[in-house]
Amino acid sequence: MDFGLYLWTTLGAFLTLAIFSFLYKDNPFYKIAEHLVVGVSAGYFAVILWHNGLSPNLFQRLNDGNWYFLWMDSTAPWYLIPAILGIMMYTRFSKKWAWVSRWPMALYIGIATGVAIPLEMGARVNRQLFAIMERSIDWANFFGVGGFNLLDTASGLSQLIVFVGAMAALIYFFFSKEHTGLFGATAKFGIWILMIGFGASFGYTVMARISLFINRIQYIDNNWLQNGLNTGITPIEGYHAGYAVIFWLVVLIVVGYIIREIMTYLKTKEKSA
């Protein structure tokens, strides 16, 4: 690792630790990292917007090489319409003409809604409904394909649970009828089904987040500590196991602190309840 790369790696490690410092409390290091990432991303997305949006989708379609007559010989002169609508948005800078910007906004939302309605109806209603009807209940393998297995998702019982659960969850989302009696009991069953699903989803996503955390720790340990120390750039030659021990101790302290905070928060919640 050369010195330049090592400096960038060090900056990455510093910013990672600066963001993690937020776990303790808001502090100047976090503020530096926060403002840096917001500023950099704003600049980055401005460039992305130009190269992936405005340039290929507007200017290249209108441009015939002569900026004075941008659209004169374009094969798609109708792209002037969105260009004008886009320019109309800038009238927001004038209090007198700000009302003009409502026209492109209204058009945008109107078109987007028109596009969204058939898509939503197709994807969330028709296709889901058809999926229910597509397969009959597998009565031959009701308790599991090829034997008794309640965890078999292809079994007839699983199919039935999915169907009943979906219908009960749907009943929970009835808003114009009071949830009482049998209807209320079914809705309650529906919310239980939803919560079971949410619990599984929560666990799955938390595991994914843990892997992201591990990735950052590996970055600090492998890319920064080990590589940096092995290059001889730092005063101490070679990677010393003691550094890793110190580093992991710090990690343990941070994790311990997070657990303590969560426990305190939960206890406070219990007391207030």
Partner: peptide, 13 residues
């Protein structure tokens, strides 16, 4: 900003 986690950092701050 239109960067997801930069937005989060700003709102958290």
């Amino acid at each position: 900003t239109q960067s997801q986690f930069a937005y989060v950092a700003a709102v958290n701050g």
